[in-house]
Design a binder for these strands. Structure first.
Ligand SMILES: [Mn+2]
Ligand SMILES: [Mn+2]
Ligand SMILES: [Zn+2]
Ligand SMILES: [Zn+2]
Lengths: 129, 129
DNA sequence: CATGTTTTTGCGACTTTGTTGCAAAAATAG
DNA sequence: CTATTTTTGCAACAAAGTCGCAAAAACATG
């Protein structure tokens, strides 16, 4: 996928910060924090700009967040819109989208209405194992 | 359950802050943030003390955390040691431990080793619905 | 229950994450 | 190219959480 086209299809203006940050995501297979993005772009842009970019990418559904304990929010490219579990390796720090794990069997008790779900399992990944 | 006995069985010294904070948990059926605990004890203790108390309660397994997006960590009494889903109502803010929902069907792909899981579903609870 | 030892607390200073208003700069539309 | 709209950098701020240290409280022991 190409960053310029991705911005265009989401009706976002093509500023160099958005292009660069999107390319960081396209080149990474790991969930990234603002800090890690900042490093990869060599602090070329202001922190506020990176945060604002993350926010708008999220609103457009280009990236999605991974919430873990005692950690800043990480973001990954949203490749698959299907709801899925995330796995975070405690050794290498990698975050995996486990789209192959079926979670459709989870049924809520009567009266509970689901809007969003956030499933995170942490442990050791195949690479570190 | 009585707070003094709970502290004793966990080999924690019986200080008034620990007793008071534990009683706040025993009287609440909702997940609580440090701030909310602070309000309920009328800021009787220093913020650092509350944080240190939460940390040690957690290490002892008396409480457990609920991690949600854009929110501070909430804690609830750990009534049931069985792994379960949490449900957070976006209207009333209540957090429910859905121990009746079976999540044993979730199997990780080969090579992934689970250590901890954090499942949070947000939406509307039966009371608000 | 007196006393010495250990643990916990309050205070303050600090770090980190994230947000916001505003003027300057860049992007876009015509 | 020019006018309009959007985005950026800067700086100041807020809120969550941590830490060292001296004072205070809890605990163990006789
Ligand atoms: Mn994912
Ligand atoms: Mn629970
Ligand atoms: Zn790994
Ligand atoms: Zn509710």
């Amino acid at each position: 996928m190409n960053s310029l086209a991705l911005l265009k299809s989401n009706k976002l203006s093509q500023t160099s910060s958005r292009i660069d940050i999107l390319e960081v995501f396209l080149e990474s297979d790991t969930g990234l924090t603002e800090k890690e993005i900042d490093e990869r772009i060599d602090s070329k842009y202001d922190r506020a700009t990176v945060y604002r970019t993350l926010k708008i990418f999220r609103e457009k559904g280009i990236i999605h967040p991974i919430i873990a304990e005692n950690e800043m929010t990480r973001y990954v490219l949203k490749k698959d819109p299907v709801e899925h579990i995330h796995f975070k390796c405690e050794l290498c720090g990698n975050v995996f989208c486990l789209t192959e794990v079926n979670i459709s069997g989870i049924k809520l008790p009567k009266g509970f209405i689901k809007k969003e779900a956030n499933f995170l399992i942490s442990g050791m990944c195949p690479g570190c194992n």
